[in-house]
Structures are given as C-alpha cells and as structure tokens.
Computed example of a mutant assay.
Amino acid sequence: MSEFPAPLRETLSRIAEQDLALDAEGLSRRTGISVQHIQTLLDGGELTDEDVDTRIRERLQFLCRQRLAESGRTYRDREAVAALTKDIASAIGVSSVWARQLVSGEKTPSMKHGHELTRYFGVPDGFLTETPAAALNRTLQSHLQNESGAGGSPADPLAELKSRFGLVGISRRGEPLSRDEAARFAGLIAEVLEQNMEADS
C-alpha cells in the first residue's frame, strides 16, 4: 500500500473548506483512473502500488478510447481504430505495426514516444506515468483554479467543454482560435457528444 500523499490531502482540505461538489465519474474521465479508485482516494483511502508499465498502457488505452468516443466510435470499430493507429504512427514517428501494438496495449511506449503521445493527445506531461493520487491532485487543483476564477475574466469555452463532459483534452491543428471561434468549435463538439450520449442511453 502507498502512503496517502500530503499534496492530495491538502487539496482535499481546501475543497472541503470551499464546500465544492466533486463528481467521481467526471474525475475518472479526466484522469483515466477507475471510479472505484477515485472514490477511495476522495475518502482518504490508500491504493495498492501498481506496475508502472501497466499504468502507462492502461492510460494510453484510455486516451485512445476517449479519442474514438469524440467521433462516436469504439475499439470495436476496426476502421476507426486503424485510422487512429495510422495517425499515431505518423505523429510519433513509428511504424504502423508498432503503433498498433501501442494502441492495443501490447507494448509500452518509450519515454520519448510517451512524451510525443501526450502532445498528440493534448494532455499534460506525465499523464501516462503519474500515480493515481498525483493525477487526481492535478485535476482537483485545476478544478480549484477554475472555481476561484469564476468571477473574473470570461471563461474558456474549451475548458468549460472539458469540464462539462469530463474530457481529458481537445486536440486540433492550425492557428490559435479567437474566443468566438473557440465558442463555436466547442458548441459543435458539445452537439456531437450530446447526440452520442442520447444514442447510448
């Protein structure tokens, strides 16, 4: 068992002081950690230490599922998985065979490729390797910052979208978006995600 980390304890204390509501399922979608483990950490419990390679492979598969879900696809859609695999291979400079093994969870990426994968998926450095407690603490810190800035400058439409649907990241190419463009872009994504949620219900 790993000792309950002080940074997470302090963050949870700040959240309790501000009486902020937490959604274990939403936190799970943003961290790649199971709802059960999220709840254990929120309750002050400890988790059994896990193998780092296993953690990396599971987090990578989580990111792949998230990326497929953005277009209403799943791992069962071979064409979509093949397209994602090809895109990843091109993005991080590996063969299609190696990328396929990464996507399927058969192989663990090197440190270099792990960094390139976090850039590709638009998630923070260390997302693939950080412990569940560290991942939860990072996400809760972001939650606190969003809440403390609620009365300040206009909210980021893409940040609101990620918070609303529990997205880890939103990856796009091209020039930076203006606030109006970001709002329209977020609206289109929200519409697609809402339709997918209705279809699944």
Rank of each mutant, 00 (worst) to 15 (best):
W98K: 00
V103M: 04
K107M: 10
R59W: 03
F127R: 04
T139Q: 11
L27P: 05
S34D: 14
F127C: 06
S28E: 08
L144C: 07
E106H: 13
G93M: 08
P132H: 09
C64Y: 03
S28T: 02
I33Y: 07
G45C: 03
A135W: 01
E50S: 13
D49N: 11
S96N: 15
T129K: 09
G32H: 05
A99H: 03
L140K: 11
L42T: 04
L60W: 08
R55D: 07
L22H: 01
D51E: 15
G72Y: 01
L68R: 03
A24N: 06
Y120A: 09
G122Q: 09
A24T: 01
E58M: 12
M111N: 06
A135F: 01
L144D: 04
A69V: 08
H143D: 11
L27Q: 06
G151H: 10
E106L: 13
T108S: 14
V103N: 03
F127A: 09
S34M: 08
G152I: 03
Q141M: 12
G45N: 06
M111P: 00
E79N: 08
Q66F: 00
S104P: 07
L144P: 01
G93A: 08
E130Y: 12
A83D: 14
L117V: 03
H115C: 00
G152S: 10
Q101L: 02
L84V: 02
V52S: 06
Q145G: 03
A89K: 09
R78F: 07
H143K: 11
L41K: 09
K107T: 10
T74I: 07
T40L: 11
L136Y: 08
G32Q: 10
T108K: 14
Q101T: 00
N146D: 15
A99P: 01
F127E: 06
T74L: 04
I56R: 13
L84H: 02
E147Y: 11
S104D: 11
G44F: 08
A91L: 10
R138I: 03
R78Y: 01
Q145F: 07
E46V: 15
S96T: 13
T48R: 12
T31K: 09
F121Y: 14
S34A: 15
A80P: 04
M111F: 15
V123T: 04
A89F: 12
R59A: 09
G152H: 06
T139V: 13
R78T: 12
